[in-house]
Design a protein around this nucleic acid. Structure first.
Lengths: 343, 343
DNA sequence: GGCAACTTCGCGAATGTTAGACATAGTGTT
DNA sequence: AACACTATGTCTAACATTCGCGAAGTTGCC
């Protein structure tokens, strides 16, 4: 396999000139450049990037840690990360951790051993104490929450979820079920906060029995919705903490011979592509997946370059999307304790 | 940052012993190993893998080329690839090409420049002539078709699709619509072949007007199904070349005030997770995504090790999954030219 | 013509690791 | 005491590239 020396020999220049031609073309005369390019063409030379990276002590690659690539929202974000990274000359090392701490550590070791320059973490930070002190390398939380320490990008989950519940209340709903993620998950915590804020502002008492725990997966939405449907006084609306659970919930509700939204309104979160095409199409929150990915790469590269950020936290806007899975509460008059003011 | 020399100094052994401890532990006494490990712990030494890879002329990474990571079937396969690769000590470089030839070439260059050891290609091979002669490095087609050259893994798309259409015919359907992928796509070609085989065996003439072209994306399923529903003599069943188009088709059919499967049966292909939860749940073909991924990694690693394969083509089994989106053809008696024999 | 400033390029060092050749010391076996 | 074996050290080479330094050449200006 041809190397830089052979190219230099054929082009009749020094090894350094070949190197400069490829890495700093502005420092080489046109004549030399031409000779070098011809020699490269002739022997089909491809620079050995392993050597280049070794010499420059940079891997030009990023690790993306994701709990599950099969989650369509994560897939969208990663698609955007990959695109922006490639544009900037970086590769993406995919780390699907399946929520395993050990697997995550394996990928972090890639940075410690110089095989990657930084990490974009898509899993939210569960416990504040554990990791961050040891993360003395470029490390960025995407899909972060209010409690995330260090550099992060996020949407305002509290406000977004409050937005949804406000809307359900404006439709006359008073008994609003909630399908959460796992209890300790920061997204669960933030969105639950939004739910409670909306209820509290409307003067609706919080009712523990209307809360069902899920795991952000379709089947867990099915189970949780089944529980809620069997309540003696079942809710007239169910807000789900993501679209997948909402899709599962819709199926479960239908299996009880109830109509969506006629008997129970349902909402999601994320706006995955299936939300638009399920029956009925889902009212949900859209997060700016593309922007999140590209901004994350830009910020991480600045960290890699050694810049210090003016502000660690970047909060991006979300969209509230009303589709057909929500409607006015038919049983509104039975909850007559509060006057409703639709807008 | 600490290097191997410093560890050797602190442990009071030679550099060679440290290297041996980490790379060939069986050649080092327990006592030395202990000293070395303690020194490593003390200075938080992490071997510089850039140097190791450079020295061994191996990147220990694989490129996975995928047309679109947001396709849930591809996401499943990649999840499996990543898992198996990590188990074998390899990293996965994600290359989402969005069907761009240029982006694909960029990733192939990673192998030419030694930053990756091999490629797993999830896009099927469109034109036989273009690439393969230049692929003189470990290169493996996953999701391949009958016409794929070189090492490949696939299911029998022809037989699988014939299986679906056979089933529809056994339910009494005679006018069976087809929503394809793009015309030149090898998956389209293979599955169309299966469709035609099934019709031909049943003595049903092929009707060009029942074929609608899609792009394997939800919205294209919507458009194609709209076209088929507006036909003067519309089909009683629609076979779709993947689940996403089937999900779109179901929505479109419902928007024409038709029932699925009452008026039109619908089938998919891939068995993505939403197929089980859409309304009605989808009759479809399940491909062994996990096996495909792990087998692909195993084979590619053998190619990287320089082995020659006994057989280049690996055909894996598929499952035919009957759910609720298909039913007996109500209009069967109007197609009375052929006696039906359900099984 | 002389000098400064700039451009272009070659030389040699340096990067961290591993492998191989070989020597040495220690241990246990015959 | 001779031998085999293991564990370890020493030393050198190798990997392909980049970078700092300085030499050589070119241009511009007075």
């Amino acid at each position: 396999m041809s190397n830089i020396r052979e190219v230099a020999r054929i082009a009749g220049v020094s090894v350094a000139t070949v190197s400069r031609t490829l890495s700093h073309p502005d420092k080489v005369s046109e004549a030399s450049k031409k000779k070098v390019m011809e020699a490269i063409e002739q022997v089909k030379y491809r620079p050995n990037m392993l050597a280049r990276n070794f010499r420059s002590a940079r891997a030009y690659s990023l690790v993306v840690l994701v709990p599950d690539i099969a989650n369509p929202f994560f897939a969208l974000v990663i698609r955007s990360i990959e695109q922006q990274a490639q544009k900037k000359g970086y590769s993406v090392l995919l780390g699907d951790t399946q929520d395993s701490h050990a697997r995550e550590q394996d990928y972090i070791r890639l940075v410690e051993t110089r095989l990657a320059d930084g990490v974009i973490q898509l899993r939210p930070q569960w416990d504040q104490t554990s990791d961050q002190q040891s993360m003395n390398f470029p490390y960025l939380h995407l899909c972060a929450t209010e409690s995330t320490p260090g550099p992060c990008i996020r949407v305002d989950n509290v406000a977004a979820f409050k937005n949804i519940v406000d809307y359900l209340i404006s439709l006359g709903h008073r008994r609003i079920g909630l399908i959460t993620g796992l209890k300790g998950n920061p997204h669960t915590i933030d969105r639950l906060k939004g739910y409670k804020q909306a209820l509290s502002e409307a003067g609706i008492p919080f009712d523990e029995t209307l809360i069902a725990e899920g795991e952000f997966l379709i089947w867990s939405g099915v189970n949780a919705a089944n529980t809620l449907c069997k309540l003696p006084n079942r809710p007239t609306a169910i807000a789900c903490m993501n679209d997948e659970m909402a899709i599962g919930a819709i199926q479960a509700i239908k299996s009880h011979d109830l109509k969506v939204p006629g008997d129970i309104s349902v909402t999601g979160f994320d706006d995955i592509s299936y939300s638009r095409y399920c029956d009925p199409p889902l009212t949900t929150i859209s997060q700016p997946a593309d922007d999140m990915g590209s901004i994350a790469v830009d910020i991480l590269l600045r960290l890699i370059e050694g810049e210090t950020l003016d502000e660690e936290e970047h909060v991006l806007p979300y969209d509230f999307i009303v589709r057909k899975s929500t409607s006015v509460c038919k049983a509104a008059d039975t909850n007559s304790d509060i006057s409703q003011e639709p807008n």
